[in-house]
Nucleic acid binder design. Structure first.
Lengths: 213, 213, 213, 213
DNA sequence: TATGAATGAGCGTTCATTCAT
DNA sequence: CATGAATGAACGCTCATTCAT
């Protein structure tokens, strides 16, 4: 279920202690903040540690190297995100397609909007390392759960579900990123959200093989 | 029409000499290659210069610092891209909305697909600096020309053209990026392209205020 | 008779408890092993402690710092070695010179060969600190006991006993080290041992002032 | 003839320029001095560079890493030493064994004594890295040339030349090291030198298979 | 003007040592 | 007393940038 992280990229020890969890959380938060305030180029392990209120040494007790920090950060948030999407998909199993799409777009949008700083920080961190693996893992996971949901729609079926699914996810994920990077006024942002739902629905209407209008 | 670069980010001199232009082009190419082969983290000015067949000193004759190189690179390709979009928009002034959308998506898609390495390299370079400025400039530029085109549609009008325009551009740009980053097999990639056109058309159909089907 | 260690280099407490002695022994063993397996550069206090089955904290209960560990390790083995040599010398007091030399070379060689790993590890640790002091102390100690022995030879006397003594010890200690560092096949190693005895005897024959062959 | 250094351990570029050679020499000298004054543990690349009057960056233009510096240093001096020994051996080809031994011991002793600081520094640097390769190479080289010399002796032959050769070299190299590490007064040192020649001669006398007394 | 050796600030990382538990 | 997480000084090394040639 979870992404398959190469051993050398996962945190050195699993947070069992409460303090350890707190420290880990502090390091993640600090990473986000540094990423946001100083940018990925000015992010140094020392700066992250300072901002997290720990020493570099401590940071390196949790992450064997800088890459691992980024990896874990992405893993952390993407797994949470995938979880939310999975929940939403399960909750809408067998429902009409309209509800499914609305739920999917809204879940994703809200998850990303909840902590816009985190979202923006993660988008910025992507280029830093081969997060490609985590991202690919996330993509496959989500692919599977949304495809399963769409396949169960009560009022529609699709000749080429794979393509429809890939298209929808590409459009949703891509659009959200675009909007985040343009960082438009809130009203406009919300408007685009609405339009995105509408767009997905119109599209599904055009491509569905069976089911009433 | 061109982006307004802060003085400290623009190339030291405009390439008037043919030789200078060739060198510049070589440096841009080298940057792309290094970005692709070694990744943004391993990109050093020395490596770029080597690959371009010049000395570091020469590179610094053209760009006052590394940032400026990235800035110029993005400017270079985004201006070309904006130009293509502008041409397409002008060519479809007053045409039916369907043709406009098809032209817009296809122009953008093709421009990005023409040199996929460049596209991917640029996506990767984004985190490097405040390219945000160049990108914002590009966005505004394109916003203007597509909005003007849509406003001239022979068979449709929109109550909220701004939102429709922003939505379409966000969707198109975002989706293309998503697809590039997932790097799916060519056939699938092309399929999504087709679906994207379809999606935009369905959407416009739903939101247009006037004009028959 | 024991080396005079500068206060800051000696173990914090003398091991009176049996448990303490066991721990100390374990730490020494661990140090040897780490020295051999990982080399002196990769030897960290943490690694030594781990290998000894104790915590770093415990290690620091026995040794105020890393230097002290090395110091004590050398002291430990060199004192044992000096003791063996002293015993041998005492046992050959008043005997013919031939027996003395044979005993000396053989005692030293065997002591070093008994645990070749320890020997090699100690040779490697030398560069680590001013073990010079321990080594010098060891040298003086041995100088004295062998000089005393040679002076008592039943069949020989030397005009310059000091020089003869220094020469013999330099040759024996140095040759053994050379052989250990070249690490030749066992047979060859044993052969050199025999030759070394022969050489020392020939030498003493040439330089003795009195006493028939 | 020369040691086979793993690619990553040899200097980055061969010193062709006069300035480069000077810099290289300065770095070697600085390494020796730092080794002597601060000891191998306090030797940092920065300190070496400072002492050599260059920047760390420059040091790293000549040596890809610290290990390579040590490697090259040992190579440098051991090759010179091997050269001297080779010359001496060639010069005494076919001579009586007595002259050979005298020449060998004296050549080695003088080479080591010429710059006692260098000698001592090198002995200290040995433990630092796997100089074993360079040293082994040196040993094989010398083995060959001395064996060849001894085989040509006009007045002696040996049943087991290999063992005799190995013994002599072990004794000579080891004794010199011992003496250097004890650092006795000059007079004593010179005395031991004489005794060493004497010892080797007595030994050869005992083991030679043919030839006059 | 082009070159590329030299520079040195700054980064990632290690590890001896401490001290709250 | 033993523990081992936390500390942070210090190291090895990189690379953007400069400047003598």
């Amino acid at each position: 279920m979870a992404v398959n992280p190469p051993a050398h990229l996962s945190p050195r020890k699993k947070p069992i202690q409460a303090r350890a969890t707190a420290t880990l959380e502090a390091i993640f938060e600090a990473t986000i903040q540094v990423l946001l305030v100083d940018g990925p180029r000015r992010l140094t392990t020392t700066r992250v540690a300072e901002r997290a209120g720990v020493s570099v040494g401590t940071l390196y007790q949790y992450f064997p190297h800088k890459q691992a920090l980024f990896y874990a950060l992405n893993e952390h948030y993407l797994e949470a995100l995938a979880g939310k999407i999975e929940d939403a998909c399960r909750a809408h199993h067998g429902r009409p397609i309209r509800q499914m799409v609305e739920a999917l777009v809204t879940t994703y949008w809200q998850a990303k909007t909840e902590r816009p700083d985190v979202t923006r920080a993660l988008y910025r961190s992507v280029a830093e390392i081969d997060n490609e693996q985590v991202i690919e893992g996330f993509a496959h996971h989500v692919d599977a759960v949304t495809a399963a949901m769409f396949a169960s729609a009560s009022d529609a079926a699709f000749t080429d579900l794979q393509t429809v699914n890939l298209t929808l996810l590409s459009v949703i994920f891509g659009t959200v990123r675009s909007v985040f990077e343009r960082n438009p006024p809130d009203a406009q942002s919300r408007a685009v959200h609405g339009q995105l739902v509408l767009m997905c629905l119109s599209y599904l209407n055009s491509v569905r093989a069976v089911g009433g209008q």
